[in-house]
Amino acid sequence: MSALGILGRFAAMLVLLLVNGVVLIYMLRKVLGRLHLRIGPNRVGPFGLLQTTNDVIKLLTKEDLRPDSADAWLFNIAPYLIFVPSFMAYIPLVFGPTLAVTNLDTGLLLAFALTSLVPLGVLMAGWSSNSKWSLIGGMRAAGLQIAYEVPLLLSALGPVMMAGSLDPARIVAAQSGVWLGFIPRWFVIPQILAFVVYAIASQAETQQTPFDMSEAESELITGFANEYGGMRFGFMYLAEFSNTFIVSAIGTMLFFGGWQLPWVATPAWLAPFVFIAKTYTGIFVMMWARGSLPRFRVDQMLSFCWKVLIPVSLAWVVVWACVQRLWPVVAMAVSR
């Protein structure tokens, strides 16, 4: 790949991320607003469409403050450490049969590896701010997000086993066609348990209610982001939304057939739209949960992860491995 090609792809990723950020923030405000009997932004531009753009301008032009007692070096780089992984995680997403930043055999692994870097940045931000609230928020993030990585990964194993590959493109391709003539071959149907685990764990990964421990606003004000302002805060905020997009996109690829329409063949030009539509549906459900649920308590959330989610997903991996190994044998025995 030429240097120009790489740059172009990066630029495309960046544009996608920014547009996503702006759209998602607008969407979040509107969805939460509607769920809460409000209208949401509606003053700036038609339907308030320019609200987020204005917010970005505001964030960009704000004074960049750093508390005197903060650890300057860590404080400055933490937002980028949060932002860059979630930016990079766009690499393995497959938007269409031929449309992806690059094809990696282990793309899924890369995506999870990258998202698991986020807690590091959060912890650094919390620690370096030299504020007690931030510190507690950072510690919570470290404890929880690392814990929820485990079920997230384990729940992805089911679809991976079914597709026999870690390459997102092949996982998506494996979901084309139908079972028994009418059920779309989406992995969510046999893997419903894994999907539930994935949904819960991804909500925790992106720190959304009911798992928004690290920024629980009624407890820690905004947790780790307390001392941040201006574009540094903007980066954290953007990363949060881009993470939401990524987990939803990965969920779409793993469980809902990625860019494919059910039953009919998907034309190449339609594929990205299908993919984005599915992903946004996922995001809508996440926002819906955010608008509907109260927050867990930190210890309950940890024990829920270690005592429920991880055993369940581990057991499911074992069960599914056995099923997949034994299925041909059984099928053969039955047919004989």
């Binding site: 809460h36 608008g291 109260p294 927050r295």
Partner: peptide, 8 residues
Amino acid sequence: GMDAGAMA
């Protein structure tokens, strides 16, 4: 409810 994190 807000204290418990439920906004709705």
